[in-house]
Write a protein that binds this DNA or RNA. Structure first.
Length: 589
RNA sequence: GGGGCCGUAGCUCAAUCGGUUAGAGUGUCGGACUGUCGAUCCGAAGGUUGCGGGUUCAAGUCCCGUCGGCCUCGCCA
């Protein structure tokens, strides 16, 4: 070993010992006759003092050290004494009086310093990710990720789950997200696809009798990125046989409680709250509500459809609704300009044509459009909104398809802007009973809401013939702080029901056979009832890290255009590689 | 594919209404200094204002295009 201790280890207990440290030069302070070096590794910082009277050569060499040089230092651990101790450092009671210094590797002047008080722009951080990863803030997140992963593995291991790896080179299935394709050299013109998730394999593992499976699985989706979405990401994937929905939910409840306990030291009460999809869509306008604050959406259509305000009236007549939010105490918080520009802009992104707003005063409404509502209507609106004097009321009048996401976005903005919650709080709940299918207006057909293997709520089987939109799936999402943090379902385990769903989705027998024939085949050989779920690992780490950016918790993330600024991926390849694969490029000018 | 924000010294930022030689802090380089810990002091170097075009007597600033980064709609079974 080139070191006897780490840079975070030494305390007063070691005074008098001769130690050897290795690390990076974090800061240097040259006083002429004495040089101080803050030596850093991922365990901490230790001050090393190089004094002329002890070794002139060593002290002179130390004077040449610069940021991020890698050095090996040997010396005696000494007390700094009461005047010179540094209470900011855990190692601040002591320093290493260096007798030997070896420069293991000089560093070029780094583009930025890990200890710098300002964080450089992300482009530079991604280009020099090896320096960025030296920053304590990022190292803490990597450690958190490790700990979380370890807790997850231990939890499932204790419950008898078996970690089974599934292939990375898989088969392309046209449904779902766009696939990342990998050309086969051996099979001319044929391609593998990287897995969007191990979905079909884990179901087949159930058929194979591995009744409790889990895997920390890398998944790939060639879709556009977001702050919480990367093209490759990690799922905590699991599947169980001989279970019902409650069993899966219970296992995950226990996991979340354990994570919160071990990572935050807090107890949460179980079971986690459960809402139906219909409930959260009505109350929050989204299937992934942020439940850290209230502010539910309220419907006032019945109160205003007879008013003289044309926009509300015509919306109601056209089958739309007038729904809105009551923002407590915010009547004077936002200027008219902000309401007309910024707020309208937020709902406008979702297609809302306008935003109506009122202040509540004396139990009535105040605004430029208040005159269109008589006193009785005004009082009824205030009552419906549970409004009090000083509250701000905001309304979007439109079809739910527009107003729901618009109001949900506005609500999220307000929650953050008005600091209605503690950003470190983890607030988790289940959303159950998703619709099995949704109508695709463009293609004029039913699409699976989750995926085509979701089991059907037993009470809703008759709706296949009458109204498929009313069929509830035995599927469940776990939402956390406004993110979809897990998603799963009980699966169909008999070929007849599976066929029924394929029929509804207009997937022909031939299509089904060619796309997922291997699964259908497997289901005919003794498939037990089964179900499972997958948790977004990166998102959970992000949530526990209190970050709103998934790149912060991935060691080597990709940019919004899915490139790696450090290594330049994706890149051109040698023409020979393409010839081997029989691939010709055809790039539009 | 659409919308928005951003790009000035190695880094973080400034530069008035379009107006003289584009500044500051920090880092870098040289020097001084034996107890600092954001060390201090003296001195120096460092710029194709992302790139290309246009408007103008004059462009970091305005316009168009383009490249890159971020946020977002669509997309993400």
């Amino acid at each position: 070993m080139l070191r006897s201790h780490t840079c975070g280890q030494l305390r007063s207990d070691q005074i008098g010992q001769t130690v050897t440290l290795g690390g990076w030069v974090d800061k240097y302070r040259d006083h002429g006759g004495v040089v101080f070096i803050d030596l850093r590794d991922r365990y901490g910082i230790t001050q090393v003092a190089f004094r002329m009277e002890e070794s002139s050569d060593t002290q002179q060499l130390a004077a040449s050290l610069r940021h991020e040089d890698v050095v090996q230092v040997t010396g005696e651990v000494v007390s700094r004494g009461p005047e010179n101790k540094n209470p900011k450092l855990p190692t601040g009671e002591i320093e290493v009086r260096a007798s030997q210094l070896k420069v293991l590797n000089k560093s070029k002047t780094p583009p930025f310093e890990p200890r710098g008080e300002t964080v450089p722009n992300e482009e530079l951080r991604l280009q020099y990710r090896y320096i960025d990863l030296r920053r304590p803030a990022l190292q803490e997140k990597m450690v958190l990720r490790h700990r979380l992963t370890k807790i997850v593995r231990d939890y499932f291991d204790a419950l008898g789950f078996l970690d089974v790896e599934t292939p990375i080179l898989g088969r392309s299935t046209p449904e779902g997200a766009r696939d990342y394709l990998v050309p086969s050299r051996v099979h001319e013109g044929a391609f593998y696809a990287l897995p969007q998730s191990p979905q079909l394999f884990k179901q087949i593992l159930m058929v194979a009798g591995y009744d409790r499976y889990m895997q920390i699985a890398r998944c790939f989706r060639d879709e556009d990125l977001r702050a919480d979405r990367q093209p490759e990401f990690t799922q905590i994937d699991l599947e169980m046989a001989f279970v019902e929905q409650d069993d899966v939910l219970g296992v995950i409840d226990g996991l979340i409680a354990k994570l919160v306990k071990e990572l935050q030291g807090k107890d949460i009460s179980l079971p986690l709250p459960r809402y139906t999809h219909a409930e959260v869509m009505e109350d929050y306008g989204t299937d992934k509500p942020d439940l850290r604050f209230e502010m539910k959406i309220k419907d006032i259509t019945d109160l205003v459809k007879e008013s003289s305000f044309g926009v509300f009236k015509s919306t109601a007549d056209a089958g739309g609704r007038i729904r809105g939010l009551c923002v407590k105490g915010a009547a004077d918080k936002y200027s008219r300009r902000i309401l007309d520009n910024d707020f309208k802009g937020i709902v406008g992104e979702y297609g809302a044509k306008g935003l109506a707003y009122f202040k509540v005063a004396d139990g009535k409404l105040e605004s430029s459009i208040a005159k269109f509502f008589d006193e009785e209507q005004q009082k009824a609106i205030v009552q419906r909104m549970e409004g009090e004097d000083g509250d701000l009321l905001l309304y979007v009048a439109d079809r739910d398809k527009v107003s729901s996401p618009a109001l949900a976005a506005l609500r999220n903005f307000l929650g953050k802007d008005l600091e209605l919650y503690d950003p470190r709080e983890i607030k988790t709940a289940w959303v159950l009973e998703f619709p099995l299918v949704t109508w695709n207006e463009e293609d004029n057909r039913w699409d699976a809401e989750h995926h085509p293997f979701c089991a059907v709520h037993p009470d809703d089987v008759d709706y296949f013939e009458t109204d498929p939109s009313k069929i509830r799936a035995l599927s469940y999402d776990l939402v956390c702080n406004g993110y979809e943090a897990a998603s799963g379902s009980i699966r169909i385990h008999d070929p007849a029901t599976q066929q029924k769903v394929f029929d509804l989705l207009k997937i022909t027998a031939e299509e089904a056979e060619s796309r997922f024939g291997f699964l259908l085949q497997a289901l005919r050989y003794g498939a037990p009832p089964h179900g499972g779920i997958a948790l977004g690992l990166d998102r959970w780490v992000m949530l526990f890290a209190g970050s709103d950016n998934i790149r912060d918790v991935i060691a080597f993330p990709k940019t919004q255009k899915a490139s790696d600024l450090m290594n330049g991926a994706p890149s051109d390849v040698d023409p020979k590689q393409l010839r081997d694969l029989h691939i010709k490029l055809d790039i539009p000018q």
